[in-house]
């Protein structure tokens, strides 16, 4: 079989217009990392179970390993690289540091993207709501408690800001 024709994709990543050429079967996590050099998005399971590749696609939280890169045409992608401000961490990032909510760090970009999405739609979640929301972000290091405490602390910071 001949090589599949590459697809030209024009998209927006973290507010900036981006273009890339992808294979039809290439997933968005791979295009972000290898075509656009945005390696903050991690590839864990590659089957939508672990959440390490979490990004927002037109504002919706998704696993970028279960999105074809070509689907990003004309859509807006937000990745971990767009979370921190100029020289200033996002409250979720800051509180993960304060509470030692990460060890190896592979799951952390996905946790940050997912937790930020939660707090933007629910500024005052219960512990249970945070745990359910982040159930698709697997962490093999922390045992989760520190992550949950950090997200609740970030929520309090954001409400006070």
């Amino acid at each position: 079989m001949s090589q599949p024709r590459k697809i030209h994709v024009s998209t927006t990543v973290n507010g900036e217009p981006k273009e890339f050429l992808c294979e039809p079967g290439q997933v968005l996590s791979d295009a972000l990392r290898n075509n656009l050099a945005l390696t903050g998005t991690k590839e864990g399971c590659t089957t939508g179970d672990c959440g390490a590749c979490s990004v927002l696609l037109d504002g919706a939280l998704v696993c970028s390993c279960l999105v074809l890169a070509a689907e990003a045409e004309g859509r807006a992608v937000q990745t971990i690289e767009g979370v921190a401000g100029e020289g200033r961490l996002h409250p979720v990032q800051q509180q993960l540091l304060e509470h030692a909510g990460l060890q190896c760090g592979i799951c952390t970009p996905g946790v940050v993207v997912a937790a930020k999405a939660l707090l933007e739609q629910n500024p005052d979640p219960s512990e249970e709501e945070v745990r359910f929301w982040l159930a698709g972000n697997l962490c093999r290091c922390t045992g989760y408690d520190k992550i949950i405490v950090a997200v609740l602390a970030a929520a309090a910071d954001m409400r006070a800001a």
Partner: peptide, 9 residues
């Protein structure tokens, strides 16, 4: 069905 991420799709 699935996680928050799965719900997005």
């Amino acid at each position: 069905i699935g996680s928050s991420q799965v719900q997005g799709r």
